[in-house]
Nucleic acid binder design. Structure first.
Lengths: 156, 156
DNA sequence: GCGAATGTTCAGAAATTTCTGAAGACAGGA
DNA sequence: TCCTGTCTTCAGAAATTTCTGAACATTCGC
């Protein structure tokens, strides 16, 4: 049970779901490959083989996922290959300001607040701005709370 | 200053940013139209005119944004037109379980946890599952805290 | 430096998404 | 019931995204 086929299927399913969530196809597949791999690191060649795609596709996918902050490049001395691995804090970083898509949205909203005069639109945009600002500010604490809970007391 | 042109530009800019964040084009434009409108509600016709697109496009866009829980249909008695308006708790609902894309991802991850045997992949997937579960559980409290802070004490 | 292995870029092909316009469905008033 | 205004659906056109493959760049060992 839980054979190689199941593993592949589950990986593809997660990738598809991530695509539905707005991620680009190849990036999602690459990310799933990392998640479902038993290895600590993967090379571009590994990914190409695992996903059955060209080196060019891998290059693009890896760049994107790296830019999201989910994986990082690892230079291995004495090897020409470049290794990649999921960052330890991949999921938490996703909610920090730097790599965040949310931050771009926030800036666009702030721009909107400045572009409209007083009225309903202004109020709506301010509310949206405040909410997303709050989220970005709270994220680090939330993350810390998660980490602590996961190590410390398993319950509550 | 802050003329109609600025307003339109800011709206389009936000829409574009949302597209970059993974939202579909027409849905993003529709959402921006709601955000930037001085009216309380908009009809399908309003949207078609504002965005310069066909009735068919509006229909699809509105369905999607409604499904995300950001706008709601309002039946006005004595009128054939259907009105839409942004939901009061649009942004907060987005982080609740029901309308959440995150929830679908979470299910795909749980499926993955069940599909792989013990090892690195299993650990990674469990971690991801726990983190997203935590997020979904915490979201309501976070939202409540935001609401309270916004009314109550402006500082801190 | 030179050669070999590996990674990146990019033009074009293929696949997918998105939008339209027309036909059909539905609801309300006469 | 019929008519009219409004919304939805859907096939196909248009636009966009995605992938490939080959040429180019880079880096390491020698």
């Amino acid at each position: 049970m839980t054979g190689e086929t199941d593993r592949r299927e589950a990986a593809e399913h997660l990738a598809l779901t991530l695509v539905g969530a707005g991620m680009q196809r190849m990036g999602a597949r690459a990310l799933a490959a990392f998640l479902f791999s038993e290895k600590e690191t993967l090379t571009a060649g590994d990914l190409a083989q695992e996903l059955g795609v060209s080196a060019g596709s891998v290059s693009g996918a890896v760049r994107m996922v790296a830019q999201m902050g989910l994986i990082e490049r690892i230079h291995v001395a004495g090897s020409r290959r470049e290794h990649f691995r999921m960052r330890d804090n991949a999921w938490t970083t996703l909610y920090s300001r730097q790599h965040s898509v949310v931050d771009e949205v926030l800036r666009a909203v702030e721009n909107g607040v400045g572009a409209v005069g007083p009225g309903r639109a202004h109020d709506r945009l301010e509310y949206m701005r405040d909410f997303y600002t709050f989220l970005l500010n709270e994220a680090p604490m939330l993350v810390e709370r998660f980490e602590r809970q996961r190590r410390g007391e398993p319950r509550s």
